[in-house]
Simulated scan of single mutants.
Amino acid sequence: MRINGNTIFIPGATSGIGLALAERLHDAGNTVIVGGRRRELLAEIAQQHPGIDTIQIDTTDAASMAAASAEVIARHPQLNVLVTMAGIMRLEDWTTPAGFVETAEATVTTNLLGPIRLIGAFIEHLRAQPDATIMTVSSGLAFAPLRVTPTYNATKAAIHMLSESMRLQLAGTSVRVVELEPPSVATDLMAGQRESAFAMPLDEFADEVMQILRDEPDATEVQVERVKFLRYGEARGDYANVVATLNAHDPHAAA
């Protein structure tokens, strides 16, 4: 993925990693469109970042995604990059159905069906562009599980394999598939994560991602150094230690 000259749509970018990358991609010389559910946050972003466009979209609602995708394409016919950023991360207790079923269903809808529907809405347009990118967003937890978030882990593992499979199908087309694999980052994705000593500072993460995109434009997986502990535990042969360390350090692990 080239670092500038793109038109990029990032749904789920009204805060956290999405917004940090939207700001940096805009500053690098891209046209950026931020999507989100809350009008007040979108208005605030538009006011604070002149030049960043905004559009209301609910990635859990198929009708909203269809309408928003049509509007994005109409307003930005040069759109060539889709970043499927939206996601939720919630605690689950699998010892009783009341402790996980509703949360698990919501997580699958947002984290897995959301990206699938978004890609479905944009794939024909992207294939018509001479140089296009789909950036999926998985997680270090796709490769090593956090005990208290089983469905989040599973959806991110699914996103990883979906990315691998899409890349095979889209080989030879104008569309590249890039997978962003964040570690724990100091955001409000989950309660207490912003204050966690285990979480990577947001600005440090976003700056390193941008550096990787500059230095490695052909990368298929964007991995900051901190995520490699989780990503390659099985390959290194220390997977059990990775899982134990992850769950010992996370503030929610004893929940």
Rank of each mutant, 00 (worst) to 15 (best):
I55Y: 00
A158M: 03
D218G: 09
H252N: 12
R75I: 14
S138Q: 05
G12P: 07
E124D: 14
H76P: 15
Q56N: 12
S184G: 10
T107L: 07
H26W: 12
S138L: 02
A46M: 08
G233L: 00
G51I: 13
D61K: 00
T103W: 01
F229Q: 05
I45L: 09
P217I: 05
P150F: 05
E102L: 04
R117V: 11
H125R: 10
E195H: 08
K156F: 00
R167E: 10
E181A: 10
V178Q: 07
V177H: 01
R226N: 08
L113E: 10
S165E: 10
P251E: 08
A235K: 15
P50Q: 15
A171C: 01
A206E: 05
V148N: 04
A132V: 04
I88F: 14
A157F: 10
E105M: 12
A191I: 12
Y152Q: 06
G36W: 06
V148T: 15
H160Q: 11
D53M: 11
P217W: 11
R147N: 11
A142P: 01
G172E: 12
M161T: 10
G12I: 02
L146P: 08
Q193D: 02
V137A: 08
S64C: 00
E208T: 04
A154Y: 01
E208G: 11
L42K: 09
G87C: 01
L42G: 03
D53W: 08
E204T: 11
R194Y: 07
T31L: 09
H49G: 10
S64K: 09
